[in-house]
């Protein structure tokens, strides 16, 4: 086993463990903290895949942005110290069944069908060409997604705004 493989398996175990904690922990704040660790694990996997820019974006946006947003929402809504509250609905059993079936299907298809690409391509310095492509070939989706962000921002403000006068 090479060093890369060892690092991969460590990171995979770390990420999956944190993800399980996100889904199964009873305290919602603990879930948010575990989510941070999951995001860090995925960012480290991006580095392992030579996608440094995406790793940086992952840390900035997910760890720095979305988690803070989630924590704000948790603080604003639920009572943190509420104990003995059921965290799962009554579909837990059948959900587990369906999820295991889908996971088995994906793993089976993966092992059965995909024989190509056992070794990665030679490493390329992707960040520079990423920036160039975003402003040339992909400039239209880039602009569309910025309009989407603007719309989402306005929508979030309107949805979260208190109504001035109650009828």
């Amino acid at each position: 086993m090479t060093v890369t493989q060892a690092v991969f398996f460590l990171l995979a175990a770390f990420t999956l463990g944190a993800a399980l904690l996100v889904v199964l922990a009873t305290n919602i704040v603990h879930c948010a903290i575990a989510l941070v660790f999951t995001f860090f694990g995925v960012a480290a996997l991006y580095v392992l895949l030579d996608a440094e820019f995406l790793a940086a974006v992952q840390v900035l946006l997910y760890v720095g942005g979305i988690t803070i947003l989630l924590l704000f929402a948790i603080m604003l809504t639920s009572r943190i110290s509420a104990r003995g509250v059921k965290i799962m609905n009554e579909q837990a059993g059948i959900s587990a069944l369906v999820v295991f079936a889908i996971l088995a299907l994906m793993v089976f298809a993966n092992l059965k069908g995909l024989v190509l690409a056992a070794a990665p391509l030679p490493a390329s310095y992707a960040t520079a060409s990423l920036g160039r492509l975003l402003l040339t070939t992909y400039v239209l989706p880039f602009e569309v997604v910025s309009i989407l962000l603007l719309a989402a921002m306005v929508g979030a403000i309107i949805l979260a705004k208190r109504e001035r006068e109650k009828d």
């Binding site: 999956l16 889904v23 799962m88 609905n89 959900s95 999820v99 994906m106």
Partner: peptide, 15 residues
């Protein structure tokens, strides 16, 4: 699959 399990079973909307 883990995320899907959480989305199907959580009661808390933030979860």
């Amino acid at each position: 699959a883990i995320g899907m399990f959480g989305a199907l079973t959580r009661r808390n909307a933030i979860g």
